[in-house]
Computed example of a mutant assay.
Amino acid sequence: MILVTGATGTVGREVVRGLPEGLRVRAMTRNPAKAAGMFPGTQPVAGDFTDAQSLARALEGVHAAFLLTTRADVEDDARFLSAAHTAGVRRVVKLSAAAVLDTRADDLITRWQRANEEQLRASGMRWTLLRPRAFMSNSLSWAASVRSERTVRALYGMSPNACVDPRDIAEAAVRALTEDGHAGHAYTLTGPQALTAVDQTHELARLLGTPLRFEELTPDETRAALNDRYPPQVVEALLASAERQRAGAKAYVEDTVRKLTGRPARTFGQWAQDHIGAFTPAPDEAGTRRGTA
């Protein structure tokens, strides 16, 4: 049995979909009804990292697990690894972050991920670490303003990031969960080129067939927007990450996706083409902009 945590999230759902047919797969989520609808034939299970009993139920009979946690400075990894060890899990593939390798990165999120990695290494189970750059899917945060205003707004629009398609991360996870030879390895995952937000805006405009405007946000504007969504320490960590990106810390490209999967990493253009509907105005939105609604 393979357990996938965060099974309905951006990466987790692609891991579930990518696992070969014939394997027994359990999808852990807070909403098992949603998982049941998304993944016919997969066993959905309710799981909460703060609930030891729910973790024990989710891990019963599991030999390999994909671990994805999101709450910085919380002991979700430690709770899961303890329960997994007790349940007899033999292999854990952990989603971490490329920033852990950057000696200049000392923000809350990076320190948390480093601690999580260390706990996994010390767990006694076979481990594999996946360290992606930013997800290409982060650009979906622009979708509403692209649809309604033909505008992308972002901080440091000319700073490059070798962002990666979440599907490539998921395929790497599937390989590590189902193949031998990945235990004790840490893989940095990037896209095939470093792109800026301005570059991504141009690519979206090309695919949409319409001009888009890029609007540079100030750090204060970005902080105010982030404060509506995250705790203060997380906001400051995200801003520190943006400063490191502006300094070029996230521009390096790795060929790991090709080495793991046998094919090149997907480009941003490929990701955007497959998700262009999110950026395309519905007829009523287009009509409203023209003043004909």
Score class of each variant (00 low, 15 high):
residue 2 I to C: 06
residue 7 A to K: 08
residue 8 T to F: 07
residue 9 G to C: 03
residue 10 T to S: 07
residue 11 V to K: 01
residue 13 R to E: 05
residue 19 L to A: 04
residue 20 P to A: 02
residue 20 P to K: 02
residue 22 G to W: 12
residue 29 T to I: 08
residue 29 T to A: 10
residue 31 N to K: 15
residue 33 A to V: 02
residue 34 K to S: 12
residue 35 A to D: 01
residue 43 Q to W: 08
residue 46 A to D: 01
residue 46 A to Y: 15
residue 48 D to L: 05
residue 63 H to V: 08
residue 68 L to T: 05
residue 69 T to N: 05
residue 70 T to P: 01
residue 72 A to N: 03
residue 73 D to H: 06
residue 74 V to R: 07
residue 78 A to E: 06
residue 79 R to M: 09
residue 80 F to E: 03
residue 85 H to L: 13
residue 86 T to E: 11
residue 91 R to T: 14
residue 93 V to Q: 09
residue 100 V to I: 15
residue 101 L to D: 09
residue 106 D to V: 15
residue 109 I to Y: 00
residue 110 T to S: 01
residue 112 W to N: 11
residue 116 N to Y: 06
residue 117 E to L: 10
residue 119 Q to E: 12
residue 122 A to D: 09
residue 130 L to G: 14
residue 132 P to C: 09
residue 133 R to D: 10
residue 144 A to R: 09
residue 147 R to Q: 06
residue 151 T to D: 04
residue 155 L to P: 08
residue 156 Y to P: 11
residue 158 M to R: 12
residue 159 S to I: 00
residue 164 V to A: 04
residue 166 P to F: 11
residue 167 R to D: 08
residue 177 L to E: 03
residue 177 L to M: 11
residue 178 T to A: 01
residue 178 T to F: 06
residue 179 E to S: 12
residue 182 H to P: 05
residue 182 H to M: 04
residue 201 T to G: 12
residue 201 T to R: 06
residue 208 L to V: 00
residue 213 R to P: 00
residue 228 D to G: 11
residue 230 Y to H: 13
residue 231 P to C: 02
residue 234 V to D: 03
residue 238 L to M: 13
residue 238 L to K: 05
residue 238 L to V: 04
residue 238 L to W: 00
residue 239 L to G: 01
residue 243 E to T: 15
residue 245 Q to P: 00
residue 247 A to S: 08
residue 250 K to D: 13
residue 251 A to N: 04
residue 253 V to H: 15
residue 253 V to I: 10
residue 253 V to D: 13
residue 254 E to R: 14
residue 258 R to C: 09
residue 259 K to T: 07
residue 260 L to Y: 04
residue 264 P to A: 06
residue 265 A to M: 03
residue 274 D to W: 15
residue 279 F to V: 11
residue 281 P to L: 08
residue 283 P to T: 00
residue 287 G to W: 12
